[in-house]
Computed example of a mutant assay.
Amino acid sequence: MEVIGFLAEYGAWSWIVAGLILLALELVVPGGYLVWTGVAGILTGLITLVQQPPWPVQWLIFGILSLVSILAWIRISRNRQEESDRPLLNERTQQFVGQEAVLDQPLINGFGRLALGDTVWRVSGPDLPAGQRVRIVGADGNVLRVVTS
């Protein structure tokens, strides 16, 4: 009942202040949702300044504006693809495709080992002796696929 009394006393300004408080809370609790509820609060206040709907209608306006703005933000942010100067940063196996290296261990029954950088990788391919020069052509999970180069 105190909220209703507050809204009745301060009207549109209570919505604008509440919206600003929600925007300030976004700085403390990041995630993006409070931005859009804050914007909805400010817009509800501006609508209430122009027209004086009863308080249940004001809450309805606030709820609808919040939902619409959050759903629009989710839709836009999910469809956005971020450009990267290093698109293979977290795909180590894909970074090695096309490189050539020398087998540390022979490939027996299709599997062996190969040192690349600071890691020893499991490799698959045709049976080959140790010391054979190979080219990495792909990956299956953490197993590099190789062929003779």
Rank of each mutant, 00 (worst) to 15 (best):
M1L: 05
E2M: 03
E2I: 05
E2W: 10
V3W: 13
V3T: 07
I4G: 00
I4E: 10
F6K: 07
F6T: 10
L7H: 01
L7N: 06
A8L: 09
G11S: 07
A12Y: 15
A12D: 04
A12F: 15
W13P: 00
S14R: 06
S14Q: 04
W15S: 00
V17W: 08
A18I: 03
A18K: 03
G19V: 03
L22M: 12
L22D: 06
L23A: 11
A24C: 09
A24H: 02
L25N: 00
L25M: 13
E26N: 08
L27P: 01
L27S: 08
P30E: 10
G32K: 05
L34Q: 01
V35W: 09
V35T: 13
V35N: 07
T37F: 13
T37P: 04
G38I: 00
G38H: 02
V39Q: 07
G45R: 13
G45Y: 04
G45C: 09
I47K: 14
I47M: 14
L49R: 13
L49T: 14
P54A: 10
W55M: 04
W55K: 03
Q58F: 03
F62C: 02
G63E: 12
I64M: 06
L65M: 05
S66W: 12
L67M: 12
I70K: 02
A72L: 15
I74W: 15
D85V: 14
P87D: 06
R92D: 03
T93Y: 06
Q94T: 04
Q95I: 07
F96A: 07
V97S: 06
L103E: 04
P106E: 12
P106A: 12
P106C: 02
L107W: 02
L107V: 15
F111E: 11
L114Y: 03
L114A: 07
L116M: 13
L116D: 05
G117I: 07
T119W: 05
R122M: 04
P126F: 05
P126W: 05
L128M: 14
A130M: 06
G131I: 10
Q132F: 04
V137C: 05
G138D: 14
G138R: 11
G141K: 12
G141A: 03
N142T: 15
N142Y: 11
R145T: 13
V146P: 01
V146F: 08
V146W: 09
V146E: 00
S149E: 12
S149P: 00
